[in-house]
Simulated scan of single mutants.
Amino acid sequence: MRSCAAEFVARATARHRLPLDYSVASLRVVDFLVDGLRKGGAGWEQVRETLFGLGAYVGEVLVRRAGAVWVDFDADQRTYFGQPVGVRMPDGRIWNPLGKVRNRFDLGGPGESLQTFYLTLHGRGRRAVA
């Protein structure tokens, strides 16, 4: 997933000067990007790959800034989360950044903010890796 996030950032920043630097503050940019897709009237199928890339990016921010590690979900977790992968936090909790991006797209609003998701996330460690 790390390479998926890096490829997404390379594509997204090649055309636009987006501050996708894996910082916590950059998650606000992700909020704006998802909101723009929503407001543009795009359907899920039209933006599926972009949302997956954004979810990989959000997960990679959790890896780099909160001490998470990428994990493949088992069959029950795949069914529950509707995604193949997620992150495990230092305290052992499992989170679904791909699904969180999907929720932001489907539901919108401040309650689905990705930056707020990070800031209120349980199980974060204090680790900053470039």
Score class of each variant (00 low, 15 high):
P90D: 07
L18T: 07
T79E: 14
D72N: 15
G67S: 05
H16I: 15
A25K: 02
G36I: 01
R126L: 09
K100D: 07
L20Y: 12
Y57S: 00
R126Y: 13
G99S: 13
G109T: 06
Y22E: 07
L98C: 13
P90Y: 04
G99V: 10
G59R: 03
E60R: 00
E7L: 14
R11W: 15
S26E: 04
N103P: 14
N96T: 09
V101P: 01
L114A: 01
C4E: 15
D76T: 08
N96H: 05
A75C: 13
V85K: 04
G40E: 00
G67P: 02
A14E: 08
Q77S: 14
W95C: 14
D106Q: 08
G67V: 07
D91N: 07
V34K: 05
R126D: 10
E7A: 13
H122E: 14
K39C: 13
G41N: 01
A42T: 11
A128H: 13
A42K: 09
F52W: 13
L27E: 00
G86P: 00
L119Q: 09
G36F: 03
G109V: 05
W44F: 12
R28E: 14
F52V: 08
S23D: 04
P84Q: 10
R102V: 15
L27S: 01
K100H: 09
L114G: 01
R65S: 04
